[in-house]
Design a protein around this nucleic acid. Structure first.
Lengths: 142, 142
DNA sequence: ATTGGTGCAAAGGATTTGCAGTCTA
DNA sequence: TAGACTGCAAATCCTTTGCACCAAT
């Protein structure tokens, strides 16, 4: 996966070059969405993104948020996380890392423990290649 | 996680004792659903389960399928898999294993490579314990 | 002009919920 | 009889889609 080293937060010009790096034309809406996403590493739902971006005084439709996040995911700008039954989360943290999901609270946090990287890849059928490895530790306090 | 060694397929009496083992009262619907699930290790959506069970001549409502699968998941009878944006899958394979998800076809297959088990667990905040570790390798043929 | 991008509202579809009826201890 | 369970249909709510308008090359 084509990732970048990011120093949060990213300013407007950083965001623009990032989008160009991923061959995405930096329209106003996309830049505003990306700026919001890369203020810090975070896990956001489409709705949160929409609220956040419009809350900053920008005008972006819900449909465009979905379009844009679909585009960003497919290009590798963000990572799609499917953990919560309710909705999709988008992870603005592009570093290699894993997730801790608290099933009681729904809270999702990052894990960086180096040892996890030792996971060896499975035998793959001909012609297939791994594009992403998702590791989620489900935890409870009960 | 409280798992059992299962030899597929499970017959009605096996299913009944399994449910009792998990402290689930074996109603007619639950037994029929479990029988369908444990014919073989498989990944099924709620809709597929409903179609399959009623197709065998049993009468179970969609709501009961959802109720039952929620109950089975919470008790550890099956494992919930959230990979497909569209719907939840339930895994009747309770052995420790990982998944290969073909993003092109949506196909989900099991992985048993022993090496993957070497994954070490992350440092956990006080009072939390891991109840499940999900590892998904996303693959493509493109 | 053509292509790509956006916005709005409606549609779609999986899952949940309310509630009445049913079974069972 | 109480409590657990089920079924039906309506409601919910995230996400997608159809389509008209706008922007940029």
């Amino acid at each position: 996966m084509n990732t970048l080293n990011i120093t949060f937060p990213l300013g407007r010009s950083d965001v623009v070059s990032m989008l160009q790096h991923f061959k995405i034309s930096p329209t106003r809406q996309r830049v505003e969405i990306a700026e919001f996403l890369f203020q810090r590493p975070q896990h956001l739902s489409a709705e949160k993104i929409h609220t956040g971006v419009t809350g900053e005084g920008n005008r972006v439709s819900r449909a465009t948020v979905y379009n844009t996040m679909g585009l960003f995911s497919s290009k590798g700008v963000v990572r799609e996380i499917l953990i919560d039954r309710e909705r999709v989360f988008y992870d603005s943290n592009t570093e290699v890392h894993q997730h801790l999901y608290n099933v009681d609270s729904g809270e999702l946090t990052d894990v960086y423990d180096a040892e996890v990287d030792m996971v060896s890849e499975p035998e793959l059928p001909e012609g297939l290649r791994i594009i992403d490895t998702d590791i989620v530790f489900k935890v409870t306090s009960r």
